[in-house]
Write a protein that binds this DNA or RNA. Sequence first.
DNA 1: CTATTTGCAAAGGATTTGCACACGG
DNA 2: CCGTGTGCAAATCCTTTGCAAATAG
Lengths: 153, 153
Amino acid sequence: MKVELALERFVLFLRGKGLRVTTPRREVLTLAWATHEHFGAEDLYAWAKNSGSSASRATVYRTLSLLVEGGFLGVLDTGKGHALYEHILGHKHHDHMVCLQCRLIIEFRDDQIEQLQEEAASKYGFELMGHSLTLEGHCSSCSQEGESAADPS
Amino acid sequence: MKVELALERFVLFLRGKGLRVTTPRREVLTLAWATHEHFGAEDLYAWAKNSGSSASRATVYRTLSLLVEGGFLGVLDTGKGHALYEHILGHKHHDHMVCLQCRLIIEFRDDQIEQLQEEAASKYGFELMGHSLTLEGHCSSCSQEGESAADPS
DNA sequence: CTATTTGCAAAGGATTTGCACACGG
DNA sequence: CCGTGTGCAAATCCTTTGCAAATAG
């Protein structure tokens, strides 16, 4: 989705919540839209600095939370003490495979798995509101590397 | 699995890695085995204090990592800045449903989902080594509570 | 105007680390 | 004995918070 459209929706979202449309908030959304990669809050703060945005660290964090709440961004918990964000507006939901070696992130989607999750939830009377599925392992490049020469340590 | 057996395997694991079998390490494993609930590193540290164990916070953290590495404990990332641990040795792998309201954790397992994950991974030439699936939502008790009286805010 | 936002810096909480001493093998 | 492991406290890392000044509507 183009940033212009995202901004437009962001304005609607803010208004809907009775929040104000401010320059820093627009800037954060714009910066978030400037990459197609996963990024961390500190990354975005650094970009803000570099791009001359006045947005402070606090505002970056606060706005990122808003964007998540509004369904603009998704959060991916790395288990490393920091979160990664990604656009989800206008994207189909997807899950991730993370290469433990090179940190590559592959996005995938399996409708059957989605379906089975729903079923598993209802089996427990659980009202499903979201989920996160992360597969950990080695991507094709990394697993090939280790093939011919076993670790000689 | 009984703690005695777990300890025995822990010893083998440590020896296998050329690490030493020390009192604090045994204590951490024993404490971890003293509960059947999910627990955090700080919890275990508190238990250590209460049980007269000398294990320091640093050792607790270091040993918990070892236990995860050795497949004795599983980690469940709460996304709240701290991790929860649980025994997995001798348990079938399972996934979690977390109630966003009361924090209840339900464990479940779906072989079909497991299977589909394997398939999804191989589709990308990804060597699957582990995964974590967490369903977020409201447990049956919590979702019933909200039923009769809709939020009048 | 006036309540909401912001920026700053300090607080916060979980986890890690540096280093001298203790101890397992 | 000797090298690994430990305890302690300080350091780190990401993230949140308090508060006076700035600003949107």
